[in-house]
Design a protein around this nucleic acid. Structure first.
Lengths: 194, 194
DNA sequence: TTCAAAAACTAATGATGTTAGTTTTATTAT
DNA sequence: ATAATAAAACTAACATCATTAGTTTTTGAA
């Protein structure tokens, strides 16, 4: 009832992630992955449902890794409201930079309705929401704020990765500035009525 | 010295853009474009340098269209500092939503060093910077602020397009909130010294 | 030792990008 | 009008890719 333990899914996904980081996500094909593993590409179908299935697994793995990085970064400090958020945001950028292919895969899942994928996304969202608690926002504005932070973080790393920030101005300074400015504006969401 | 005017580059690029919007950028191949134009795919090489060349032209065209949409949206109002920025930002989202394939192409140019591409990007950046003039930021902080707005706008539409905003909360309200919060935080960049 | 099931394989198919070489055709110059 | 030119379309061919079907191998359980 359980024969031939050769490849297994985690190994396959990790290898795929490494290849994505090294060569770029676009170079991740069944052919290149199979070659990397010294296997024929049809054999991959024993572990994964074709290329879309592999990309889906990659996205899920990426979201899991991203979440664990963010969580690890947060528990370090817990003083001001701002500091843990900045630590989390910097962990986010660090992840996107050190694992560019894997990060890119997280937002390109062929099946965005996948259960595990949604679960990891929700965990990340909950993490961010928890960090925003000190701002004492109502439910709706908290959602707006989480969306804002996610947009800032993803937008920044995506544009950076595409080479869209051309000017010779330090990127880390820009990123910190951008997050701090957003946080500085957050109190605005507390005392408005309409 | 000029024979057989069949296809020309603008027609090819516009057709490619339409196909990208309808079927998704990933479906844009030399084969599908050629089929769409009732042509054999090798003929496309008379106008464009393979698939990378076509994607590059698409990116340039997309940046040009995006810029013109933003410019058109801005000149409408000019009262407060906030209003034109919101108008611009909403034009940005509108463009990304109505031309999803073309928008997606703008940040995936195979040659990010292309001259025309850089020119349109710079024009857009200049446009945003001009809108931020009322905040009276010094040169460095102005760059941070432009990067912040771009990150917000792109991040939001990218996550939205990926289906990343799952909760049943109005997206337009979130977007307006996110922009307004960032703008509300901008004065913070004026009176800090370090 | 037998057997079933999973994992690897080979072979084949269709679609893709690309190159090389050929044919067609509109414009220009005679 | 006619001939020459040059661009644009074509056909043929090849390598690469994803995928399916069917076969062989191998491991763990009966």
């Amino acid at each position: 009832m359980s024969p031939r333990i050769g490849l297994d899914l985690p190994t396959l996904v990790r290898a795929t992630a490494q290849l994505a980081d090294e060569k770029g996500l676009r170079e991740v094909t069944l052919a290149t992955v199979a070659k990397y593993l010294n296997i024929r590409s049809p054999s991959l179908y024993n572990h994964v449902d074709g290329l879309p299935g592999l990309r889906n697994e990659l996205a899920i793995y990426g979201l899991e890794q991203l979440y664990s990085q963010l969580e690890a970064a947060v528990t370090i400090s817990a003083d001001s409201a701002k500091e843990p958020i900045l630590a989390m945001a910097e962990a986010y950028v660090h992840f996107a930079r050190t694992r560019p292919g894997l990060y890119e895969a997280t937002l390109q899942a062929p099946d965005s309705q996948n259960e595990r994928l949604i679960r990891w996304s929700n965990d990340t969202i909950t993490l961010v929401a928890r960090l925003l608690a000190p701002y004492e926002l109502d439910e709706l504005n908290l959602i707006h704020a989480v969306r804002g932070l996610r947009s800032l973080m993803h937008g920044f790393v995506a544009i950076e990765h595409a080479g869209g920030f051309g000017l010779p101005v330090n990127l880390n300074e820009s990123f910190a500035s951008v997050i701090e400015v957003y946080l500085a504006g957050l109190p605005r969401l507390k005392q408005q009525n309409e």
